[in-house]
Design a protein around this nucleic acid. Structure first.
Lengths: 159, 159
DNA sequence: GCTCAATAGTTCGTATGTGGAAGTATTCAT
DNA sequence: ATGAATACTTCCACATACGAACTATTGAGC
């Protein structure tokens, strides 16, 4: 238990590095973190619809509308109403947006490389292994939680 | 290089876990992330002045003023003008704030324990070792950068 | 073919956060 | 005594967060 408190203290003492990557990622952009992530996630998938962006970024649709509209206004994104389902709006990067994302990824990779250089092959492998293990466990917990919630809902409805 | 791109893709595919801890930390609070961190950092140090809070959280003083004022209004913090230097405002947790922080830390520790349980002793040790190494390297870079900047400034002034 | 629930997204209002500029008050070096 | 430096606050414009209410569209069910 004392070990965990020490871990939290360590985190807090270094929280600028942990929670504020701009401390060591010199992106020097007019984009906020949300905008940055939106651009990267759209680039990752080629094209996303509004609800997918909201889901990935874990923000409400109303916030997504504002975020996307501002990026469209800045010329980085293009919105397009689906022909087959007029409710749906698809979002893509513009050429300007794509150029920006290339620069962003380059900068990020420079810093990832810098960190990577500090690690031995064994450390790197262990780190990735741990990361994957933790992510998978968290994903599994989310699914278990969702299943539990749904089970409870069904029980209520049956009663 | 392709390895780094895969790393970024992995991050983006799991960014909710990485950047949105509320996905797996069920804090269930009316506090925002900034407020949360402010409370924790003040608890960590017992008492901080405004500029220290701004520095720790990497936000401008104007933002800190608003943040602290809202937490004072909510009854979690107390502000106090220094007797020895009337420019300085010291910030402390109230009893209400301390109670809240105890709850917060309990919740955080539960989740840290959950992740900790996934790891072997060796993995845990390696992870901490890597983390310390990375943080120290980043701190060193910041200092080197600062020294370089100061050196350049001095050179200009001498010329 | 009609109805209505469900779905996709937008608008609105409110609160908070961001961050620079301008301001007030205080301290301290000269 | 003066003025630079320091600590913080206020002001302002904009961005983000988020729930409620809304519009438009789709599709299941009859």
């Amino acid at each position: 238990m004392a070990g965990e408190t020490k871990l939290l203290d360590f985190f807090l003492d270094n929280l600028r590095k942990v929670f504020y990557p701009e401390e060591w990622i010199d992106l020097d952009l007019e984009l906020s973190k949300s905008q940055l992530l939106a651009m990267l996630i759209i680039d990752r998938h080629g094209e996303l619809i509004m609800s997918q962006i909201a889901d990935y970024l874990n923000i409400p649709l109303s916030t997504t509308t504002g975020l996307v509209n501002r990026l469209v206004k800045s010329g980085y994104l293009r919105r397009e109403r689906s022909e087959s389902d007029r409710r749906i709006v698809a979002i893509q990067l513009t050429e300007t947006g794509k150029t920006l994302v290339v620069n962003i990824k380059e900068t990020i990779n420079q810093y990832v490389e810098r960190i990577d250089r500090l690690l031995s092959d064994e450390e790197r492998e262990t780190l990735m292994h741990i990361f994957v293990k933790v992510i998978e466990a968290l994903n599994k917990e989310k699914q278990d939680y969702t299943a539990e919630v749904e089970s409870n809902i069904n029980k209520i409805e049956i009663e």
